[in-house]
Each structure stands twice: as C-alpha cells, then as structure tokens.
Design a protein around this nucleic acid. Sequence first.
DNA 1: TGCCTGATGTTCT
DNA 2: GAACATCAGGCAC
Length: 191
Amino acid sequence: MNPNIHSILDAMDAIEAAKYLLGAELIREIDGKLLRVRIVETEAYHQSDAASHSYHGRTPRTDVMFGSAGHLYVYFTYGMHYCCNVVVGREGYGAAVLLRAAEPLEGQTHMQQLRDKDGIALTNGPAKLCQALQIDKVLNGHDLAKNPCKLLLRDPLPLDQIVQTTRIGISKARDEPWRFYIRDNPYVSHT
DNA sequence: TGCCTGATGTTCT
DNA sequence: GAACATCAGGCAC
C-alpha cells in the first residue's frame, strides 16, 4: 500500500524532499502498459529561490506549485521540452522538486518507442524522462497518489549514497547546492 | 571530448 | 519581444 504521499511531502521543505525522493519510484500507466522508473536525480526549488518559477509569485502557470503536496507540476520549456516536478511543502508555499533523471525498471521497450532512443539516453535528463514516460501538460496538476501516474515512496537512502551539488542548466542562483543524485548511478545526467 | 547552435512554444515584462 | 529548470547534432580539436 502506498503511504499517504500528501501528508509526508506536505511536512517537508523542498531540500528534504529532494533527498527523500531519490530512490522513489514513478509508475506510469499508458494504454494498459506499465512503465516503472526509479528516481536517481532531483533538484530542489522553492519560493525564496531566484531560479524557481515560484520566486516571482503565483501566476496561472505556477499555480499548481503553490497547491497541495504530492501533485505533479509539468511545464513546457525551450519550445520543445516538458519537465516534471513533484509539488512539496504546505499549500500556499511554492515549492517543488524537479525530477532530472531516473533509472528504468519496467517497460523499457515502450520507453524506447516513445523516445526513439536506447540505453542511458532513455531517461538521463529531465525532458528525456518526461518523453519516455509520456508526461506532458495534460498531467499538470495530477495527483500522484492516483493512476495513471503514481509516486511510490521508498525508505530514505543512506546519506552516504546521496551526492549534493550545485544545480545545472539554469542561469540564476547557480551556486545553491540544491541538486541531489544517487552516487555511481549511470543514469545521472551529469556528474 | 567538448563547445556551439538550431529548433521552437509558452509565459511574463 | 526576450527569456527559458533542454536536447541532439555538427564540427573542431
């Protein structure tokens, strides 16, 4: 049974949650096919973070980020890519954890078809992950306790398996060490 | 291996 | 009208 992800994530700030989500599984169901991945890389974003979408306040776009924890915040970027975040923290505070990379556990064949790629390139980047799991704006605001996209929390990883570094792919607040990944995992996008 | 660039939509100023 | 939490392909070294 999936524990209540809403109450667990509601009680965490983005940084705690970014660490906690490492090792968690994302289960996506598409046309009866099951795709399952293990999250291996995350980034924390919150309201007092200049690189966060919520930094400039609540707008129609960032609305779900300010909503209740345990929901999916999907946004479109660079004209061609989606990225997905897990909303965390209490309602009314704009915080989320960007899912940057994951390790396929089940349904690789279907992911290959969606991505037209194979191997590491399947899910080793935020937009790649979304493509492999067919996550787009339709799922923006989706409740991760429900099908067709569920978050399955796992026991927190031992701290010596988690690497904490500065974030990548952004221009603001580059120096904040709010990126986390699982040590020695080949699917981590950049080390 | 590593830099540079093009593709391209949505949001906010 | 510019910025953007990106990716993949091309070319130089």
